[in-house]
């Protein structure tokens, strides 16, 4: 494996996976994932559908539980705590607390349809961080301006295009000031001409130093913005390294076959 995914000794990586396994009944979707995402990195997960990349991403903020192995975010176990040499499941409240520091952007946006764009962004800071309403709305407005949608603040999601909805979703995730952002195929549900706006927002986020794990089929984005790339297939990491190396000179036959299809 290339050295791009191993952290320098002494520095705790943002995400560390050790032999992560995940099963749905008899079907094993993750068969021992080992990887490290360093702070400030843009980490791309690519691979064919059904390779387990989205499942792994969802494990990072405990939307899925893992069956074996260890998964750490910022040095803390995901979903469990160690007490007296035993693992204890986290309570609902504790899980919610850990998720506050991890933003997530979904393929199908999942904006709250009964709230305006502004209210979507202000909801979590007002409810979870208990910011005063005016302050939460002010901050939400700033974020909407940052993703170029200040003029759409009063619109409901159904009145926005897919690309606009996804940018609101990014602003909503950023409102909790996360230390890690997860993107689950953020541009896969968009019309081709709307993809660029969303990728621009993500590129700027990367420039600001945000740690990002991105499941994507946008190889151009991975090549330009990514710091590390992992190619997954059949629930295992097949190949990893710097995006430019992996994408231009894949070492593995399966990687080559996949890239030949998508590039």
């Amino acid at each position: 494996m290339s050295g791009a995914t191993t952290a320098p000794s002494g520095v705790e990586p943002m995400v560390r996976a050790e032999q992560v396994h995940k099963r749905y009944g008899a079907v094993e979707v993750l068969k021992g994932i080992d990887l490290e995402v360093r702070t400030g990195q843009v980490f791309c997960l690519v691979g064919p559908s059904g390779s387990g990349k989205s499942t792994f991403l969802r494990c990072i903020n405990h939307l899925e539980t893992i069956d074996a192995g260890r998964l750490y975010v910022d040095g803390e176990l995901v979903g469990y705590k160690k007490k007296g040499g035993k693992l204890h499941e986290l309570r609902d409240r504790e899980v919610a607390e850990r998720r506050r520091d991890i933003g997530m952007v979904f393929q199908r946006f999942n904006l709250f349809p009964h709230r305006t764009a502004l209210e979507n962004v202000a909801e979590a800071p007002a409810r979870v961080k208990r910011l005063p309403r005016t302050q939460a709305l002010e901050q939400a407005m700033e974020l909407l301006n940052r993703v170029g949608l200040g003029d759409k603040a009063g619109n409901y999601p159904s009145q926005l295009s897919g690309g606009q909805q996804q940018r609101v979703a990014i602003a909503r995730a950023l409102a909790m000031k996360p230390k890690l952002m997860l993107f689950d195929e953020p541009t896969s549900a968009l019309d081709p001409e709307l993809v660029g706006d969303v990728l621009d927002v993500m590129r700027r986020l990367a420039e600001d130093g945000m740690t990002m794990v991105v499941v994507t089929h946008e190889m151009g984005f991975a090549r330009e913005v990514g710091d590390a790339l992992v190619f997954m297939d059949g629930g295992v990491v097949v190949e990893s390294g710097h995006p430019r190396e992996v994408l231009t000179d894949p070492q593995h036959e399966r990687t080559r076959a996949f890239l030949a299809k998508v590039l």
């Binding site: 609902d92 991890i102 349809p113 909503r172």
Partner: peptide
């Protein structure tokens, strides 16, 4: 179900998700 996932990923508890996100819809 994506609504619940989005609310959870923002750190809303189950109760908050039910009251603020799921029930109004």
């Amino acid at each position: 179900g994506g609504q619940t996932e989005a609310a959870h990923s923002l750190g809303l508890t189950q109760g908050q998700t039910l009251r603020r996100i799921v029930l109004p819809q």
